[in-house]
Design a protein around this nucleic acid. Structure first.
Lengths: 214, 214
DNA sequence: CTGGATCCACACAGATACTG
DNA sequence: CAGTATCTGTGTGGATCCAG
């Protein structure tokens, strides 16, 4: 909760007062993948100062974006979950992700990839079509899966039996921006698949955004 | 340009590094309405410190979002204009506006409304349909117009001959969130129109978003 | 006038240590 | 595990000043 307001009767300004502070939308991004515990959020955002995380969560709770729930015993764990109001930020996060992904170039050594990042990358680059498909995307230890059903998409963390396996060995940015197509990705060794080159091309067709900026 | 990075290979994180700082997306919002001079931007964002505005513009220019152009003489004016890359932020701003507008309640005395805010409010709440219509929306001294052509929308600053005039006398938030419909808005005196109650209902149908959060 | 630059005070973020 | 406490630094707010 920014005590400093923008002084404008405007939806954009109001939104930024609620989720415009540093780290805010990255926390929302991870919660859009699923409810998480404090420690899970820290694991997904290693560079966030713990006091900032605690402050944001309190602000979100007070603003009605996030609910803090204590699980039944014996776990007794505390989980943070988006309310429907908070979950309605998904279009915002997806739009930001689609725009920002175009500026993703090389994977720098100081940059990490988490399961949540991969899930949201697929969700934000999805192009509805008329086909069905199941993919299991692997990136090192990280495994997520996507179920495409025409214009419907489900992406979640973990493997999926019977899916076409796509394994990435480098930054997926160039693939998602169309800077490289499926067949080329196979040749360069950026990607491997349990399927065919055509499968990979279909994958690159489903999950694609505009070209990178000049 | 935040020198502090989030350390994540993620489109959302990259986008926030470029336009996640304070005031950034509000400057973009105003530039999405049209190119503007430094003084115009200050007028539209009265509470922005001048050094922050200057810094953001320099960051945007360096990131390739904004172009700084010196007009031909005799005006010699300096205008800031979005590049195509910067203009691609429109879906982000519209999504933020649509989400944040639901939290717009009363118009507080310390909050202003500018032509740019009104233009983006209409753009972000537009629901494509099968009809055509022309509206001139007035809010005090502010006049903008919208041309609806089925699923196509044009909103710009200024009056429009032959349009249905809609004049607002209070906060338009409740109208846009559907908390109040056209007929009711007429009765309460929130809105007046040169047309009929049915015209106003149609207007409220074109520019509408989800209900306000509980 | 426009289009900024400069200065200072302060709130918030970053880093780390510590606790129920 | 789920935070709080503390200290330090940087970005922001606010005012003023200046050059073309």
């Amino acid at each position: 909760m920014t005590t400093k307001t923008y002084g404008q009767y405007c939806g954009v300004a109001r939104a930024l007062e609620l989720v415009g502070e540093r780290w805010a939308l990255l926390i929302i991004r991870d919660l859009l993948v699923g409810p998480k515990r404090y420690t899970d959020l820290r694991a997904g955002l290693p560079k966030i100062p713990t006091n900032v995380l605690a402050t944001r969560l309190k602000e979100f709770e007070q603003a009605g974006l996030v609910e803090r729930r204590v699980q039944a015993r014996p776990s007794g764990a505390i989980v943070y979950e988006l309310t429907p109001y908070g979950a309605d930020l998904e279009p915002v996060v997806l739009a930001l992700g689609a725009w920002g992904a175009r500026s993703l170039g090389e994977l720098r050594p100081d940059e990490i990839v988490t399961p949540d990042i991969l899930v949201m990358a697929l969700r934000s680059t999805f192009q509805p079509g008329k086909q069905k498909a199941k993919y299991e995307l692997r990136f090192g230890e990280i495994v997520v899966h996507a179920i495409v059903d025409r214009d419907d998409l489900t992406v979640e963390i973990g493997p999926l039996d019977g899916a076409t396996v796509v394994e990435a060995f480098g930054p997926i940015g160039p693939l998602l921006t169309g800077a490289i197509d499926g067949a080329e990705a196979l040749k360069t060794g950026l990607l491997k698949t349990s399927g065919t080159a055509a499968d990979l091309d279909r994958f690159a067709h489903f999950f694609r955004i505009g070209p990178a900026p000049a």
